[in-house]
């Protein structure tokens, strides 16, 4: 089985997770920039964070045979903090990086006027830099927030097929299904979605434009819930091809729209490269992988 985790915050995870994820078939991860749990107080710390998810973290992932990409953006929570907002002027240079496959994660937290402005501004940046956008839906007032999100997307000029609306559930999926946007589901141990509820959603809404992620971060979460969802799909009567579509082909198609999702070295003849369990750390493959040729 081959798996893309299209939304996971690897800077918060250990090397044990990388090993377990590789063993489970995960070969590609996308790390959206987001809130760190502790509020930032300056633009400089934002840049250090962006540099980290574009620098050290891809290198770390590579040791475990996993290709790491990122999405870059100002998250809605910190869009409300004037000390952080200035990072908007730094974004254009980050949005040109090879490993940036979308703008994000964007969207609403408390649905303030500041969040409106920053959200619309960054959707315009997505258009300008030829990138798709990863948009999360708010934790609170979720249904109204999802509707408002889709309104802003509609006004942005960014094609709905280039927008992934994430953290959906049974209540919000129907709103997005008709919009043409991609639908993302974060499978959590006890909130958001679980594998069996996810299978029910797939049965009702089909597999088109559907992606599943673990959204694992510094909170209670599990990077293997992508695999658990795949297993639940198989138990629920879906085929291996269905699983491959949701866990691999769909996220590859979505982020592939950036034309920067370079999967060289991740697959051989369409199959995941054999497990290395970190053995590349002292070997040449790390250095080989760094060359462009």
């Amino acid at each position: 089985m081959r798996i893309v985790d299209p939304h996971i915050h690897m800077t918060s995870r250990t090397t044990d997770d990388y090993e377990r994820m590789h063993a489970a078939g995960v070969r590609v991860v996308v790390e959206p920039s987001f809130w760190l749990g502790q509020p930032r107080t300056s633009v400089g710390t934002f840049c250090d964070y962006f540099d980290s998810i574009l620098g050290w973290e891809p290198f770390r992932a590579q040791q475990f045979g996993i290709a790491h990409f990122a999405t870059i953006g100002l998250n809605p929570k910190e869009a409300n903090d004037p000390r952080c907002r200035e990072v908007l002027t730094e974004l254009p240079r980050y949005l040109e990086k090879d490993r940036v496959v979308a703008v994000g994660e964007l969207g609403y937290d408390s649905m303030t006027r500041e969040e409106d402005e920053v959200f619309a501004h960054q959707l315009a940046l997505a258009v300008e830099h030829g990138l798709p956008a990863l948009v999360h839906t708010p934790h609170r007032d979720k249904l109204a927030g999802t509707r408002r999100t889709l309104d802003v997307v509609r006004e942005s000029g960014l094609a709905p097929g280039r927008v992934l609306v994430d953290h959906l559930n049974e209540v919000t999926v129907g709103e997005v299904a008709g919009s043409g946007c991609w639908m993302g589901f974060s499978i959590y141990p006890d909130t958001k979605m679980d594998p069996h509820r996810m299978v029910a959603v797939l049965r009702e809404y089909g597999l088109e434009r559907m992606v599943v992620n673990s959204a694992a971060d510094w909170g209670r979460s599990d990077p293997l819930l992508t695999l658990r969802t795949a297993e639940a799909m198989l138990e629920g009567g879906f085929t291996e091809d269905d699983v491959d579509r949701v866990l691999w082909r769909n996220p590859v198609e979505f982020y592939g729209q950036s034309e920067r999702l370079d999967l060289d070295g991740v697959l051989e003849a369409g199959e995941p490269v054999a497990a290395t369990s970190g053995a590349t750390f002292e070997g040449n493959s790390v250095l080989r992988g760094s060359r462009d040729a």
Partner: peptide
């Protein structure tokens, strides 16, 4: 402005990015 995107443009032209 040009350096970050140079490697992927090079590859589309069949050149070595580095």
């Amino acid at each position: 402005a040009l350096f970050p995107a140079a490697a992927r443009h090079a590859r589309t032209e069949g050149l070595d990015g580095e």
